[in-house]
Computed example of a mutant assay.
Amino acid sequence: MPRPTDRPVPRASRTGEQTSAVVFPGLAGTTFAALGKFLVLDRFARPRVRVADEVLGYPLLERFRDSTDDDYSESAQVASLISSLALAERAETVRGARPRFCAGPSFGLRPTAVYSGALDLAEGIRLTAAIARREREFFRTHHSDIVTHTVVRVPAEPLAALLAEWNARGDRLEVSGDLDQGFAMVTLRETLLDRFKRAIGSIGGYSMHTMRPPAHSTLFGELRTAMEQDVFADVGLRTPRIAVVKDQDGSIVDTAEAMRTMLLDTFNRPFNWRAVVGTLVAQGVHTVHFTGADALFTRLDSTVRHLHVVKTDPKSALRPSSLPVGETV
């Protein structure tokens, strides 16, 4: 069966063309209502759905439609993967994107691995499904009392002091994601959550959503080990064809081993979006193509103050008015 191109081979930049990057956002908005129509109709998505059906051994869209889980179900994660990759091809083919770098905070590392050439599409689908299953199994018996909570407009020094105070008395809290100045994800025991929300309010901050299962915490070293032994042991990663910016610290990933380390580190190391932006800016990137459903990273001050944002998401891809003359979904 003909397979879709995992990603077009990067073409040389035209004279005077500004350096760009592709970023794959995380799992927010990964529901059938948000993605189903796009996956059925989009000409870049349809071939990837057929590959997913073959790899998974079941009809992806039917499983996705019938899933009662949220963004974290196996079918939702695979749907997010292939929709993001389809949108990246659309950005290149329709919008003329010529990225020299790619990145993907949190879950976005998985489409990044495929887009960069470190995995082919079928391998990426298989890996994503296996990670989803193993993670669900792990949190069924481990750390059921842990959540990751997002806070915003929290002054950096008061937040650091608050975490230090709570940790000093034995309440283990840690930052699992640095999104922007005063915008962070904090992992803690669920029994502390209400008190933590009040404490955040007392220093002028606001509470947002709470993630279950939690993510990106040093508490989850066992999960990383389980993934390394049970899921990644037979995964043949290759040297990426396009430079990847590591979401944990902004370093450049350009070997197969560094790619493996990055994918495993996501389970027990926090991500740092500001470090990613800093690296992109330092590398001369001007335009960032966000390919996927996102209402977060494209709006952050740390993003828009430094980079020109171009969104290619499922809704805009299906909007006839946004397509060039003669272009169809």
Rank of each mutant, 00 (worst) to 15 (best):
R95M: 12
T112L: 00
A132C: 05
T112C: 12
G104V: 03
P105Y: 10
R90F: 11
E123F: 11
R100W: 01
S106L: 07
A164E: 13
F101S: 02
A161P: 02
C102N: 12
G117S: 04
V152D: 11
F101W: 14
F138E: 04
R95T: 01
G96K: 03
V147E: 09
I131K: 02
A161S: 14
P158H: 09
I125W: 05
A156P: 07
G117I: 00
R153S: 14
A164Q: 12
E89F: 00
P158M: 05
I131W: 00
S116T: 03
A130M: 00
W166Y: 12
A164H: 08
L121E: 06
L81I: 02
L85C: 08
S144K: 14
T150V: 15
E137M: 09
R126N: 06
S80W: 04
A161H: 08
T148K: 09
R98S: 11
R95K: 12
L121A: 07
R136P: 03
P99T: 05
E165C: 00
E89D: 15
N167F: 03
P158N: 09
S106R: 07
H143T: 00
A130Q: 05
S80N: 15
L159S: 11
R153L: 10
G104C: 06
A88L: 08
I82R: 02
G104R: 01
S116G: 13
A129L: 00
S84T: 06
I125C: 06
A86I: 01
T93G: 06
